[in-house]
Design a protein around this nucleic acid. Structure first.
Lengths: 340, 340
DNA sequence: CTGAAAGCGCTAACAT
DNA sequence: ATGTTAGCGCTTTCAG
């Protein structure tokens, strides 16, 4: 029991060759006699040789693992992306380490440091904040392949995959305005988060363009969890003059809003209209179905992984920014508001 | 640019001591003079020394990373567990590698092998199948800490964290029977999956106990994704004599069933009653609210991580099986069926 | 209290 | 075509 795994040395000894030859045979490089190569492979098989990726990594300075730092794996948006990246990584014989920053810069920094000390070169990060980005900048300077997803940070030029947050939010708000709404609420998470900020900006611009003065009382901020979003929605709609429509910046918050409305006895779209950013499974089940700004989620992880593997395979090209369009999926959660 | 990270050697040189002393000072073991220790720490700080976890791991035979192999990170059940484990792992200065087996034994095996060759000792696995479990057995024999979650495999004795699947399913079916249903459908995933099998068994036993003969035409099988579940539900309810009630084995399938019913114009609970295994965010938003068998999700990851870290810290104790109870949360998706 | 030296398992430059 | 050897960065006896 507990016998040590076979090492290259064992294989070499068993096949009566030197370690160098065994390595050559197993990794098929350099010159090895056919017959010798076969003998080595047989030996490896017999001994259940696996190779020690740690030693390999120590030797050649990098570990075939991708570090993926996300805000929250419980958000289906990130879960989907993580899944897609994992599949692609596996295809390239890479593993995936998933870390969650929980939207704390400090955690993002320490996670990154810890992964770097593992000689991981190859990161996909959804950065928490765009100030204090020294840690990402250092990565770039050290030439470590990095792809930013969902968010970018100022002053850093590297590959990134985003969606058009501002445009998406604008479409949502324009639609609400066109339906006669003027008191349009916003349920968002922390503005340190890039997407939140861009969506806020789209919201504000659309409002102004529609001749509506933005009003802070129409905005409620919470962490992006269903529970927090419920509270934030209740706060927003407990005001004397509540919004007649609500725009929520992600699917967890949309769901929170739905649950809050249910709890408060507010009915959609009769009492309040709703548009959410990011589609979700049951958006077409609810009654009414929920109008959303949909993002091409399945393409984001794919694109990010593709960019990363290009860099990892040594291609050097100018950094690429991919921005996907969003689509407004009009369903039934918005009602026309009698003017005035 | 791209300057190499400082090594222990650099630090030692800078502090004018040997590598051994530097190591002792930095890891605080053995005897080091106070003043020397301080000098080393200063040097480390000045040089931005980080330590190479890879080299450390190669040296002492294990990498402080937990390997976590799940069926599907997109299932909120697993996402939640992964998140909880990650938080606990971080507390213990471990990182988390998440792999997804996609419910394929082959992928589970190769993932495990690949992680083992990284000298990862410490796994949390939701095993795909309970036959062909040689890979898990080998882990145990090699004394590698392993905790099984959500599922167990036959003939392997190790720590595990489960819920009472059979009992949960039984409660659901008994409830449906008590409401007058006799043609009770089951929407499940592959029976190679432990939970699926146990829930099926609960379903069958409850049926028999209620004097109802199980009928294969009442059972529909699909992969556990919303899309597949929609199809499977449509198949089930396109029969001449469809079920009057449906029990779904996980939340993704419950959501699929809901969407299928919506598409088919079948209304809940008027036309069909529904009970799902595993609660989900919007279960209380839908109209009617969905009756579910709830699992203590938040405790599962915690318990698994706790067990794993006990083993990792060298405690040797008999292996522990934790089985959490489930609760039937009666909401509004089941209607009383007139007898006959 | 500190240093010298071996070695974890592997690869690759160099030699034969 | 194959072997020898150095060394990746670290820890840990063993000497002193």
């Amino acid at each position: 029991m507990a016998q040590k795994p076979a090492t290259l040395k064992d294989v070499a000894a068993f096949a009566n060759v030197s370690r160098a030859t065994a390595a050559r045979a197993l990794n098929s490089y350099g010159y090895v006699g056919d017959e010798t190569a076969q003998r080595v492979r047989d030996a490896a098989e017999k001994l259940g040789y696996r190779g020690n990726r740690l030693a390999q990594a120590l030797r050649n300075g990098q570990l075939p693992i991708i570090g993926c730092i996300l805000g929250d794996i419980q958000n289906p948006f990130f879960a989907r992306i993580a899944h897609d990246i994992e599949v692609l990584a596996r295809g390239n014989r890479y593993n995936l380490i998933i870390g969650s920053s929980e939207e704390q810069l400090e955690q993002e920094v320490s996670l990154l440091a810890s992964l770097q000390s593992l000689s991981i070169r190859g990161f996909i990060v959804a950065p928490t904040s765009d100030e204090n980005n020294f840690h990402l900048r250092r990565l770039i300077e050290e030439n470590v392949p990095l792809v930013l997803i969902d968010r970018v940070v100022q002053g850093i030029e590297c590959d990134s995959v985003l969606v058009d947050n501002e445009g998406g939010a604008r479409k949502a708000i324009e639609y609400l305005i066109s339906m006669g709404h003027r008191r349009i609420g916003l349920l968002q998470d922390d503005t340190r988060i890039f997407t939140s900020r861009e969506r806020l900006s789209g919201y504000q611009h659309a409002l102004v363009a529609g001749g509506i003065t933005p009003d802070d009382r129409m905005i409620s901020v919470s962490q992006s969890t269903v529970e927090h979003a419920i509270d934030a929605t209740i706060r927003l709609f407990s005001q004397k003059v509540p919004p007649t429509a609500l725009f929520t910046v992600d699917s967890l918050m949309t769901q929170g809003a739905l649950l809050a409305f249910r709890a408060m006895g507010i009915s959609i779209p009769h009492d309040v209209s709703l548009v959410g950013f990011d589609d979700f499974n049951l958006a077409t089940f609810t009654d009414p179905q929920i109008t959303v700004v949909a993002q091409p989620v399945s393409e984001i992880g794919l694109a990010a992984a593709r960019l990363l593997f290009e860099k990892l395979s040594g291609q050097s090209r100018p950094s690429e920014q991919i921005r996907f369009e969003t689509r407004l999926l009009v369903r039934g959660s918005v009602s026309r508001r009698p003017e005035g």
